[in-house]
Design a protein around this nucleic acid. Structure first.
Length: 1025
RNA sequence: GGGCGAUUAGCUCAGUUGGUUAGAGCACUAGCUCGACAAGCUAGGGGUCAUAGGUUCGAGUCCUAUAUCGCCCACCA
């Protein structure tokens, strides 16, 4: 006999399974296998950044992908899950640079481009290994032989080719753009890499004097700014061209808002209206004059530098705000930049790339922004130009990567024109070729893409794909044509604003030093990380080569990702996939929720509210983590996950709160022993045992693993004498005479269909719930219990063994995508102990691993609603006996005498089940049939049309029974009254569909019958007491 | 400012096109060491489905408003 340990050992099982899977390479996909018409299924992993370790979001994302991939593989698809990591340009370089500065006090310039890139590669090797290891720990069945990296040679080739094609079509341009400049990393960053944070600041009111004011004209204008140092780059002061009309419009808008506002919102709006009215008398006359002066082309003097700058009329200056006038610094403010373009103003860049001021700033050149601000303010004050200083909270843009303030900065940038290439991507989602699940997320995709904003792709970094462009000046079109004659891997284009040429090539090196004696200079920029990410589905498969992989697996089937990168990544993949290959990159996009902590905050390492997936894997097992993840993957937007610290000494769970989550050590309130957290710094703290941050939400999965393990343990303990099935359809000889066997077969067919459909439509939580409930409540609690007496009887033993194996094996296969380790471990035990078993859906031979076992496909003829209903009656009878026992405080081992009154039909059904009732309810079943008479002292109940009598003679607490029945009757009377009034109200019976009405009547009759009987029982009991 | 979503048991969440007496896990209460499983078994308590209106024979489910919370996007001299 094959006996298992009492507890499932997840650590040992995980190690064994990984060895087995790697030995068999079951995760590997060969494109050649798809030739015989076998369907394919492919997924590319959203490549994790090599900046660090995987977090719970990754665990969720990858669990869901693996669930899909494992099911499809078992269903016989040629299944590819492409793994890989992302070089994450700016993020990775920032991390490495910061460490360099902290540990060696070196900047990237001290090291130089080549050596810095070497350092980053070393970092990448280390973290990539760790990340891939974590994915394996999670059980991800990626095709490890194909692991890619967004910066590897294959991806680089695709990047050069894609860029080249964009360049060739004139979609890559270079021009002046106002960018978010990160002065620490000295690169432009995209809007997506910027976060806003409120900081305390000031609002400075500065007076600019009008040049040669005429009588009756204002002698000065006052403007307000939070960044006084930018006045050094001012090239105008703006006033609204028609301040009177603008005030009217502002007031009208406010009045409209006031009318629609709630009572609570009204006062501040009313105050705003008042302030506008006040402005009409206090400010408007001056503004009107200024507007007229602006039309006359009058000028003001820039304080400190003394330059003369024009007064311009522009709608951007809002008369209802501030002084009504605004300084214009086109090179350092996005709105001012627009004004500058509209009014053809000069644009003066006052910053060096490192954030110090350049020579345009005159005496302030060389100062940092902070120092310059102090000096400018002091000098303004000394000059008497500073009118007022207010304290104010400022929403300041910071770089996501360096955490330093962003400076808007005018610079030459590469960008990709979206106008032409966005349309096909819009259409692909509009017409459903790319389907987003849940569908509501399609809106953010379409909205974002509809704006068709140019994509700035250059980054002034060293870590990334170098832009495949060379600059050359002083040459002619003819020189270039001569130099690159016969080369179709080279294209060039004249710069828009100079006589230089840009030369683009798909080759890594152009192979020439000079064109007509002029040197070629490689562009120093690298591409935005998202550029290589956008190519990920086709670049990993070998594009632009016409590889077998590309033919077999592209377009991929499904992309699984979280909602925050729908625009950044999903949309760009669709754009580039269509542009490069003419085909969509994937058919389905499955969006999954974000995991938040108990307060609804996003998890992050810096907040200290995160959970390390490896802690969960270690403490509860990878299957527990995965089951929890699948259960959380509902269609709602976020999932809250309360986090606890687990005391390493006593196992006690300590709720993680805002107060304790950043403490380096915590004293366990139960055992009083201290443990350390991720924040431990001092040697004393570091010496303590570590208390992992976990969540009780994963315990259900751990318990479920153990439940499956023990169900298996039971089956294996009872396999003696098992000789395999002797019929070809997998259903044991003797067919399905027993009700419970027909029921099991029916349930297996139903549950298989439900679970399969749920996974196929990305309802992972539904799949987890259905399988959990079936395995636990139906297979273990009901079927397994029923088998106990049958296994003891030689006449039924063999049938029970076969059916137990059928049920267990099916459950294992259905659960394998969600819980691969425990199901594989059990599978291997079954291979050993029950090698003769054969499932109806198995072909010849037996799978060495459950990974490649056939997905169950019970015939729909197994589904039998009548049997399921009847079995429900049986379970209800057992349930009501148990309930009576419990209420009567009958000791668990004491048998009770039971009689059942029911129709002849039901009696025929229940009689063969008597032994089962006896074993499940610790009872002795007496009479069953229509003529059954209630014992004189009995506790009664009605269950699915069966009257259950438990003889209480000698055991009972009659008063308790009277109390219970009375209480129940009260409830029943209420329900009956409600139902009656509903049926008799007239309108219900007239208007509701007949089927619904009939059902209601049926229920009413049943309730009334039940009540009558209960009243009779009550009378009998009262008579005795 | 624009868009999207959430509000159901103490906690975390399900709840299909409107139709039995609204479910699960955890937590709670009582009882249980019988050879599958105490990470378990049996039974139980606990919900005017955020609030106010409306549509309907019938609303957790549909509509309108309100409140609270969250996310995305844009903007803030």
């Amino acid at each position: 006999m094959h006996e298992l340990p009492k507890h499932y050992d997840h650590a040992a099982a995980q190690a064994r399974c990984r060895t087995l899977w790697d030995a068999g390479r079951y995760w590997h996909a060969e494109p050649g296998d798809a030739k015989g018409g076998r369907p394919t299924f492919s997924i590319v992993i959203p490549p994790p950044n090599v900046t660090g370790a995987l977090h719970l979001g990754h665990a969720l994302n990858n669990t869901l992908q693996d669930v899909l991939v494992r099911m499809k593989r078992m269903q016989g698809f040629v299944t590819l899950w492409m793994p890989g990591t992302d070089h994450a340009g700016i993020a990775t370089q920032a991390v490495v640079e910061r460490r360099l500065l902290e540990e060696e006090k070196l900047s990237r310039h001290d090291l130089g481009r080549e050596r810095l890139v070497e350092r980053i590669w070393a970092w990448k090797e280390q973290y990539e290994k760790r990340i891939l290891g974590q994915l394996r720990d999670l059980g991800a069945s990626c095709d490890w032989d194909r692991t890619r990296f967004t910066l590897d040679e294959r991806c680089a080739r695709a990047v050069r080719e894609a860029f080249f094609r964009l360049f060739e079509k004139g979609l890559v341009r270079r021009g002046k753009r106002l960018v978010n400049w990160d002065t620490f990393l000295q690169t432009a960053v995209s809007d997506d890499e910027v976060f806003h944070e409120e900081v305390k600041g000031h609002f400075w009111h500065i007076r600019y004097d009008v040049i040669d004011p005429r009588p009756g004209e204002p002698a000065s204008v006052t403007v307000a700014t939070t960044r006084p140092e930018t006045l050094l780059g001012d090239t105008a002061v703006a006033v609204h061209p028609d301040p009177s009309a603008a005030l009217d419009a502002a007031e009208a808008a406010l009045r409209e808002k006031l009318a629609a506002a709630s009572v609570k919102e009204q006062p501040p709006i009313a105050a705003e209206i008042e302030s506008i009215q006040a402005r009409r008398t206090e400010l408007l006359p001056a503004l009107l004059k200024l507007a007229a002066m602006a039309r006359d082309g009058r000028q003001v003097r820039l304080p400190l530098l003394g330059r003369t700058i024009p007064l311009v009329a522009d709608e951007w200056a809002k008369p209802e705000m501030g002084s009504g006038c605004v300084k214009i610094t086109p090179a350092h403010d996005p709105n001012d930049y627009d004004v500058g373009l509209r009014r053809s103003l000069p644009m003066i860049n006052i910053l060096n790339p490192d954030g110090t001021l350049n020579t345009e700033a005159g005496p302030y050149a060389g100062l940092t922004i902070r120092k310059a601000r102090e000096r400018v303010v002091a000098d303004l004050e000394a000059a008497g130009q500073l009118e007022q200083v207010e304290d104010r909270l400022i929403d300041l843009a910071h770089s996501d990567r360096s955490k330093t303030p962003i400076e808007p900065y005018l610079a030459d940038q590469w960008f990709i024109r979206m106008a032409e290439i966005a349309d096909p991507a819009l259409r692909a989602v509009e017409d459903g070729r790319v389907a987003i699940h849940p569908a509501r997320y399609a809106k953010s995709y379409l909205d974002w893409l509809g704006e068709k904003r140019d994509w700035p792709v250059g980054r002034q970094l060293w870590w990334g794909h170098r832009i495949p462009i060379w600059h050359v000046s002083g040459v002619s079109e003819t020189d270039l044509a001569a130099a690159f004659a016969g080369r179709d891997d080279v294209r060039w284009r004249k710069a828009d604003d100079s006589d230089a040429f840009f030369v683009c090539s798909t080759s890594e090196s152009l192979g020439v030093d000079a064109v007509a004696g002029r040197p070629l200079a490689r562009d120093p920029d690298v591409l935005d990380t998202w550029f290589s990410s956008a190519l990920w589905p086709h670049s990993t498969l070998g594009w632009p080569e016409k590889t077998a992989e590309l033919a077999a697996f592209y377009p991929t089937t499904t992309l699984v990702t979280s909602r925050d990168i729908i625009t950044l990544w999903v949309a760009r993949m669709v754009i580039m996939g269509l542009f490069d290959t003419g085909e969509i990159p994937f058919k389905d996009v499955a969006i999954h929720p974000k995991i938040l902590d108990r307060y609804g905050e996003t998890m992050s390492k810096s907040k200290g509210n995160g959970v390390d997936p490896l802690d969960v894997i270690e403490a509860l097992g990878a299957d527990a983590l995965r089951f929890g993840m699948a259960s959380m993957a509902t269609e709602t937007q976020d999932v809250r996950m309360p986090v606890e610290f687990q005391c390493p000494s006593c196992g006690h769970m300590i709720e993680q709160t805002v107060q304790n989550r950043t403490k380096p050590r915590i004293d366990c309130p139960k055992c009083a022993k201290p443990f350390r957290t991720q924040w431990a710094q001092t040697p004393d703290d570091l010496a303590l045992p570590r208390g992992p941050a976990v969540s009780e939400r994963f315990e259900a999965g751990r318990n479920f693993s153990n439940k499956l393990w023990n169900a298996t343990r039971f089956v294996l303990m009872n396999l003696e004498g098992y000789a395999g099935e002797d019929c070809s359809n997998g259903i044991p000889a003797g067919s399905l005479d027993a009700l419970e066997d027909r029921w099991l077969a029916s349930r297996l067919a139903t549950v298989t269909a439900e679970a399969t459909a749920a996974i196929e439509t990305y309802r992972f939580a539904e799949a987890a719930r259905v399988l959990y409930a079936f395995a636990w409540d139906e297979f273990c609690s009901a079927y397994l219990e029923l088998c106990k007496p049958r296994l003891a009887d030689p006449a039924t033993r063999r049938q029970a063994q076969s059916m137990l194996l059928l049920g267990l094996d099916t459950i294992l296969r259905l659960l394998h995508p969600i819980m691969p380790f425990v199901t594989e471990e059990i599978w291997q035990h079954l291979r050993e102990a029950a090698s003769l078993r054969r499932m109806p859906w198995d072909g010849a031979g037996r799978a060495e691993s459950i990974m490649v076992a056939a997905w169950p496909s019970p015939p729909s003829t197994w589904v039998d609603a009548t049997t399921e209903r009847r079995f429900g009656t049986f379970l209800a009878v057992v349930g009501s006996i148990r309930e009576i026992r419990s209420r009567q405080n009958v000791p668990p081992k004491t048998r009770v005498e039971v009689a059942l009154r029911c129709s002849a039909d039901l009696a025929a059904l229940l009689s063969p089940m008597a032994a089962s009732i006896e074993s499940m309810a610790v009872a002795t079943v007496g009479a069953i049939g229509p003529d059954t008479v209630s014992p004189p002292a009995a506790a009664g109940a009605t269950a699915g049309g069966v009257e259950v009598f438990v003889d209480l003679a000698g055991l009972i607490d009659v008063e308790a029974e009277i109390g219970r029945i009375s209480k129940e009757n009260e409830k029943l009377v209420g329900l009956i009254a409600a139902k009656k009034s509903k049926l008799e109200s007239g309108s219900f019976a007239e208007k509701a569909p007949p089927a619904v009405v009939a059902k209601e009547r049926e229920q009413l009759a049943e309730m009334q019958g039940r009540l009558e009987k209960a009243v009779a029982t009550l009378a009998a009991l009262r008579g005795r007491s």
